[in-house]
Design a protein around this nucleic acid. Structure first.
Lengths: 335, 335
DNA sequence: TGATTGAATCGAACCGGTTCGATTGAGCCC
DNA sequence: GGGCTCAATCGAACCGGTTCGATTCAATCA
């Protein structure tokens, strides 16, 4: 590997001049610049990013930290961020915490150690320790998906209250009254907001919610399946189930299929968030989806803005909340 | 941030002794070691990974390079690799090339610049230039998924010939003769092997393949959909369709649904590779799946072996080919 | 003509570690 | 007591860049 000193020797200038020519060509004379250019080409010089980062105290990498890269929601956002970052000479490295807070924290620490220019973070933690940790980081950070109380950073996400309310209203319009909901973990803002959208819409319509119809699916497959089973074995079954995310909703569909319930003839189903291949799942589930491309675009621009603009770093944090979209399927019948 | 010099000063030893104490405690006296330990705790010293990598010429990071992290196949493998790597004090960074060879190459170059300890690579390129590039890298690399002719590296994958043959044999057993296949790109070994498994099994059974029944789905959604449509509008339709990967198979299912064909009553369907939520797709597709956990485990162990064992680096490359598993569904009927 | 200015370039310190040959000194042998 | 060995520690060079104050020198001005 050729180093900057090889270039300097060949071009017969000092090392610092080569460095200057690379970072600020205008400050070097035409003649010298040309000699340096030729020397660089001759020895095949490429600056070592590690050495650059060490000296500068900052790299051109952006850390993307999520709980599950396999989730198409995060995948779309990653793609948007990456495209934008590449256009601005930045490079995205992805880390996956598998939803574990301690692992996420270790990964963020590692990324900070790598002197990443900025972080796009879908936080999974929520305790004070974690919040203090994030607050203490001196790097541009844009949080997304989960709004965590106490983290004073830019946030990009969807209106989860509205998402819950939209589907609930839809089911009410179709004549449903015995509507059940499979919720997510109560420490997650997305889960509580979606539930609040459901509960308040029901209350506003004057429909009482059967306490047995609110079950916790933890946003996971196993808990969602179990929660659905609990709903389905009740003597007075719900006429419609609202899954607070894609995982619990599809777990419910699976449970229904296994017990021989037809959807939507026997029980209607609606869910929040899309899933890959939803178009070939029978029935096509009625859902409310987030605009992942728009979310990704905002995250990307906001983060790059903070990274590249000197004064961008000190701007006060801002929330960007997008309206989700209703996508009708044929999983909800009129009764 | 406290540096190693702060520690040295406080412990009243030289910087090199601190470094030695960290990397090889046995070579430092108990007394000194204790003083250094206390000093480290007192100033809150954490070694800067960047500086370490620069000085050592090698980091503790492992690069994971694939064309689509969102693909659950890659996701499972990533998880296995990550768990294993974390147990061995290594850290996985993921990059996604979106299937673009030039981008993949840029990412590999970047990872090399970061002095990654090793690479787990699902190659997407196949031209000579790319092969030479990979061959020229002086880092432990384990390739997986795609076996690329000319790349002399460890390879971990499944027996794709067998995968194609198994499903073809299954369809033949059920009485099908008019079997169509939606293939993948001809430059991909997985695609050609799967097709070969199909073609040879048909030939061995003495069943002639209608040339119109072999269509190219490029392993993508749009091309797969188009290919399926081409099959479905023929006057003499196939009685069964074999999708050479999950994407083209599900695209075919979608096309069938849209044209009003029932599966399996009108047309049977089988596919290679699983997909998330396959259990709630109606009908449950008969498929041959790869053992992603086993693949991931082998990749992880092989890579770490090469990284950590001094002589591991020079061992000749080896192929690990696993047998895929047949998973019956109800998408293929007897005729 | 001597002082001033500014563009071009340089040298040295620095980022924060690692590595290895050199040095010190205690313990052992003859 | 002199020579030898070996464990413990040190100093300096090094990894490959960046940065900034200092220097050089030609052009400009009073």
């Amino acid at each position: 590997m050729a180093t900057i000193r090889d270039v300097a020797k060949l071009a017969d200038v000092s090392v610092s001049t080569v460095s200057l020519a690379l970072s600020n060509p205008a400050r070097v004379s035409q003649k010298t610049l040309e000699r340096i250019r030729q020397a660089i080409a001759a020895v095949g010089f490429v600056a070592d990013p590690l050495a650059q980062s060490l000296a500068r105290g900052r790299s051109r990498m952006i850390g993307f930290v999520v709980g599950n890269v396999g989730n198409p929601f995060f995948g779309d956002i990653r793609r948007e961020l990456e495209n934008y970052a590449l256009d601005h000479q930045h490079f995205v490295v992805v880390t996956d915490s598998s939803g574990k807070t301690d692992r996420e924290r270790a990964m963020v620490e590692h990324l900070i150690g790598l002197k990443t220019a900025g972080l796009a973070l879908a936080p999974s933690g929520y305790d004070q320790d974690y919040i203090d940790f994030i607050a203490g980081l001196n790097v541009p950070i844009v949080c997304f998906d989960q709004k965590v109380a106490g983290i004073e950073r830019d946030f990009v996400g969807s209106d989860n209250y509205l998402a819950g309310a939209m589907l609930t209203e839809h089911l009410l319009q179709l004549g449903h009254r015995r509507i059940a909901i499979i919720t997510g973990p109560s420490h997650m803002r997305t889960a509580t907001e979606r539930y609040r959208g459901f509960a308040e819409t029901m209350a506003n319509a004057g429909v009482e919610v059967n306490p047995n119809f609110v079950v916790d699916g933890q946003f996971t497959r196993t808990a969602g399946y179990e929660a659905a089973m609990r709903l389905l074995i009740q003597p007075e079954r719900p006429s419609a189930i609202l899954g607070a995310n894609n995982t619990v909703a599809l777990s419910a569909l699976q449970a229904m299929q296994e017990l021989g319930f037809r959807c939507p003839e026997d029980i209607s189903l609606a869910m929040i968030d899309n899933v890959q291949w939803s178009s070939v799942i029978t029935p096509r589930i009625t859902m409310v989806v987030q605009d992942t491309l728009a979310l990704g675009g905002i995250i990307a621009r906001r983060l790059m803005h903070r990274i590249t603009n000197p004064q961008g770093a000190v701007e006060p944090p801002q929330d960007f909340v997008l309206t989700p979209k209703f996508v009708p399927g044929n999983s909800c019948r009129r009764i």
